[in-house]
Design a protein around this nucleic acid. Structure first.
Lengths: 150, 150
DNA sequence: GTTTTTTTATTGCAAATGCAACAAAATTAA
DNA sequence: TTAATTTTGTTGCATTTGCAATAAAAAAAC
């Protein structure tokens, strides 16, 4: 059995750790960069979707977002039609740090792909997308309280 | 720029979330499965190496391991030669839950690879290993307090 | 053989994480 | 239209996480 998930776990933890250390100089605490980049990329997104996207518990996302708002990186706005949801937008401050985060991400991406040919990079990207789609099915299944059978 | 790291992050968080939910029935709390499998696979390993392997902060590993010991899954043993280190071994209880964890992992692996040919699975595994080696270099660099330049 | 550096482990904080439980708006079913 | 279900959001609590700081054994440098 090829332990691809173990490799993925190692890579993900290492990268997250690096990002958390590097973004402290932006006054972003642990994990906040995850939400901020996506809000910058998809302004108007709601936190429920964000949690789904990032694959994190809804309540964790709620608190991370609340803190981003508290610290002035993002802003919540009521919707006209739907009184329940609160759309998320970056503030000026949020928009200002976004390029720094992007640069860090690009650097990490490039470092991660070092020694891989362009073709190999594309291959791993495509395969990873397929794996991700497989895994997110199970995640939603289990998160909803269903039981996998094995 | 191909966002392979974002895919990896999503996959890793989803899988970790699934495992944490599924291993609650073994009385393993968040993250503990990571340490327990490796101790079962490499009995006698010390926690410093374990942290490096898993890519987690040393102090986090220390506490997770302490709790595994407290709950009777593993046992720390003094070394004859080296008075500083404490070697880690699974207890009977630890050995008993190991197959369950393995089965879950195998199932997740298979589910993740669904729709990929054997050849594609091998390809992604090899590429991931190369990526992991790249990333762990940076992780160690940054963890030691060094600054990446970008 | 002594000093310096590295390795290994620990504890005190402050913070993030996630399950349970709850609430209310919106959607679907009857 | 009313009732049932789903979606979206929140708070309480227990736990994990990780940076700083400390300590002591071991290894390396001098």
């Amino acid at each position: 059995m090829l332990e691809i998930l173990r490799e993925i776990g190692m890579i993900a933890r290492a990268l997250d750790s690096i990002s958390n250390i590097e973004f402290k100089e932006l006054d972003l605490t642990k994990g906040q960069y995850l939400y901020l980049v996506r809000i910058c990329e998809s302004p108007g997104i709601i936190q429920e979707k964000l949690a789904e996207m990032i694959k994190v518990d809804r309540t964790t996302a709620a608190r991370a977002i609340k803190k981003l708002e508290l610290n002035g990186f993002i802003q919540k706005k009521d919707d006209e039609q739907n009184k329940k949801i609160r759309k998320l937008f970056p503030t000026e401050k949020g928009k200002k740090v976004f390029p720094f985060i992007k640069r860090e991400h690009d650097y990490s991406n490039a470092a991660a792909l070092e020694g891989l040919s362009e073709k190999e990079a594309e291959t791993i990207f495509n395969l990873l997308q397929r794996v991700r789609k497989n895994v997110e099915k199970d995640w939603e299944f289990v998160k909803k309280g269903n039981k996998r059978n094995y």
